[in-house]
């Protein structure tokens, strides 16, 4: 019981710590690490609740849930990193466009896409003129 609470409690502390770091830090990589720490905390809690005493085998269901959760976390982390790298590329050539946000609703037209790698669907369609 006490060891179980220690392990699960550590998970809760990790969750709170990750949450704090996520809210306080600006840098995206720190935010990403913070959210992974918070996620690790939640997985910790699942591992702790699988414990059923020294004699009984652990509950396999929380273990399987954690495995699923880890794969989800890996996937999300990969996507965040890829988006982040894309953002850095976009910022390299003297970024001047303002992020469209609450405060910038008056911002002017979006600049043309910086990466002409792909045709954006902004091109007009064949139109049928009417009289």
């Amino acid at each position: 019981m006490s060891a179980q609470f220690l392990y699960g409690g550590a998970g809760i502390l990790l969750f709170a710590l990750g949450l704090w770091s996520l809210l306080v830090h600006e840098a995206l990589l720190r935010k990403l690490i913070a959210i992974n720490i918070a996620g690790g905390g939640v997985f910790h809690v699942f591992i702790a609740i699988a414990y059923r005493g020294d004699t009984a085998p652990p509950d396999p269901v929380p273990h399987a849930l954690v495995l699923t959760g880890i794969v989800v976390a890996v996937s999300a982390t990969a996507l965040v990193l890829a988006l982040h790298r894309r953002l850095e590329q976009a910022e390299e050539p003297a970024a001047d466009a303002e992020v469209l946000s609450e405060s910038a609703s008056a911002s002017s037209a979006a600049p043309p896409p910086r990466t002409p790698a792909e045709r954006t669907p902004g091109t007009p369609h064949p139109e049928t003129p009417h009289g």
Partner: peptide, 13 residues
Amino acid sequence: ALTGKREAIAANL
């Protein structure tokens, strides 16, 4: 983020 524009990527991140 499909448009690939900077603000779209930042917002969706």
